[in-house]
Every structure is written in C-alpha cells, then in structure tokens.
C-alpha cells in the first residue's frame, strides 16, 4: 500500500488547538476513519477535501463528538474530549459548527437563533445577547432579516445566519461541514466571502468542502482524504500544482480539468 502511505509537509505547529491521535471509527463493517492523525494550530485554516465517502464529514463531526470514535484520542486546547454530559456540552460551546443543511431552529426567528446559545449556555443577559446577535448578523450581511423565520430566507442567507449563530458563542475553532454543498450556485460566493473574512480575521477553521477556489485562497493547509485515510497534507499551492500521491493526482484531474 504505497498509495496510502501519507505524504506530509512540515507545517510549523506552534500552538496546537485541535489534536487528533490515531482515530479509528467503523460504521458497521465500513472502516470509515483509519488511524487518522491531525493537528490544527491556533489560527490555522485547514481545508479537508476528498471524494465522497472518504470520511471527511465524519472526521469533522468527531471533533465535537457528534460522531463518537472507536479508538484514539482527541484533544481540544490541550484537554481531552470528555464523555457525553455537562463537560462535553461546555466544550461544544467552544467549538462552532456549521452544517451542510444549515439546521437553523425552524420555530425561532433569525435573531432568536443567534441569541439562544448566548442566553442558555453562556448565561449572557438578554440585552447584551441581542446587541451581539444584531452586530453579528450585520457582519454576515443579514441584519435586515433579523425578525424573519429561517424558512423565509434563501439558502445563502440561512447559512450566513448559521455562521453568525456559531460565532455568537465566541468559539475557539469553527468546523464547517460542507457549508456550500446544499446551496444554489449563485449563493455560494456570499457564504464563501464570509468564511474568507473569518479566515483573514485569524479564526481557527476546519473546512470540509468541494470548493477548490476557497481551498486555494483561504487555506493554510489542505488535507486530502480518501477511503478513510489522510493521504496527503500540504500547503494549497503545493497540493494543487504538484500533488505527490497518485490518489490526489487522480482526484484533481477529475475535478479541475473541464
């Protein structure tokens, strides 16, 4: 298996925020994550790409334990990921998550969506929570929609609200699980722009995506996964212009040239 042997670039990791050590996970007979080692530094933007079914979404979801792992260790800011319970809830509050299907709370207005976590988890008082929510909604460009319900918004607007909802918790790291995959083409850019801005502001981000343009321009590092393994890790320029593994060459040739 020379193909699966990992090609790794030496990326300077000074301050480790998320550390995954030999993670394994099975879905029944399917070995969906195989000995995954990944370290994400504070302020780093890591883009995870790969073919469908390669385990990249699952990897993203293990970081805040929406998916449990069979073996291995996950550390967030030096602390191991706790078992289900209060400890885990506290840690999840520090890890923002943006989903492919937005998952805004359908029975609450946009403003209430962004206020809920602040009030119920952070115990922020209502006034301050609302100010912060409005500021964040303005920042992602949907301030005018604050009093509408999610179903009244376009997909791109909903996803930007979802980003604001996650940011309202002042997360240490943001996880994006295919944030633009459910969007109409013309709405992808408005979401990517918000994410670009976040990256420029120094947010630590793990982004699972098929948007190669975003990977090129915003990522510090590209992680290429296939068949449950990390096959290649490299700086984006290096990865896109000169991929070293055959699997990555094959993948890129299929998506970049047409």
């Amino acid at each position: 298996m020379t193909e699966a042997s990992m090609v790794k670039d030496s990326v300077a990791t000074t301050d480790e925020l998320v550390v995954l050590k030999s993670i394994n996970k099975h879905f029944g007979a399917l070995h969906v994550l195989q000995d995954i080692d990944l370290t994400i530094a504070r302020g780093e933007v890591v883009v995870v790409i790969g073919p469908s079914g390669s385990g990249k979404s699952t990897l993203c979801r293990t970081i805040n334990r929406l998916e449990t792992i069979d073996s291995g260790e996950i550390l967030i800011d030096g602390r191991p990921l706790p078992q289900e319970g209060k400890e885990l809830a506290r840690l999840r509050a520090d890890v923002g998550m943006v989903f492919q299907s937005f998952n805004l709370f359908a029975h609450k207005t946009v403003l209430e969506n962004v206020m809920l976590g602040q009030i119920k988890v952070r115990r922020t008082d209502k006034q301050k929570a609302e100010e912060k929510a409005r500021a964040l909604l303005d920042r992602v460009g949907v301030g005018a929609q604050a009093d509408k319900y999610p179903a009244q918004l376009s997909g791109g607007q909903q996803q930007r609200v979802a980003i604001a909802r996650a940011l309202a918790m002042d997360p240490k790291v943001m996880l994006f699980d295919e944030p633009t995959s459910a969007l109409d083409p013309e709405m992808i850019n408005e979401v990517l722009e918000v994410m670009q801005q976040l990256a420029r502001d120094g947010m630590t981000m793990v982004v699972v995506t098929h948007e190669m343009g975003f990977a090129r321009s915003a990522a510090n590092r590209v992680v290429f996964m296939a068949d449950g393994r990390i096959v290649e890790e490299a700086a984006p320029e290096q990865f896109f212009s000169n991929p070293r593994s055959d699997r990555a060459k094959d993948f890129l040739s299929k998506i970049l040239h047409h």
Binding site: N64, L66, K86, A89, R90, L91, R92, A93, D94, V95, G96, M97, F99, S101, N103, L104, F105, A106, H107, L116, G117, K120, V121, A162, R165, A166, M169
Partner: peptide, 25 residues
C-alpha cells in the same frame, strides 16, 4: 429533523435543554 438536535448540541446545550428548547416546541 435530526439536524435540529445536532445543531442544538453543537451549541453546547444539555440534553434537557435540547429537548425543551428545540425539539419539543
């Protein structure tokens, strides 16, 4: 949809909060 509860858990809400604030309503 299961995503509603996932989003609530991802925010750091406890199980009783997820149920009472997001799922049951």
């Amino acid at each position: 949809p299961v995503g509603q509860a996932e989003a609530a858990r991802a925010l750091g809400l406890s199980f009783p909060q997820v149920l009472s604030l997001v799922v049951l309503p």
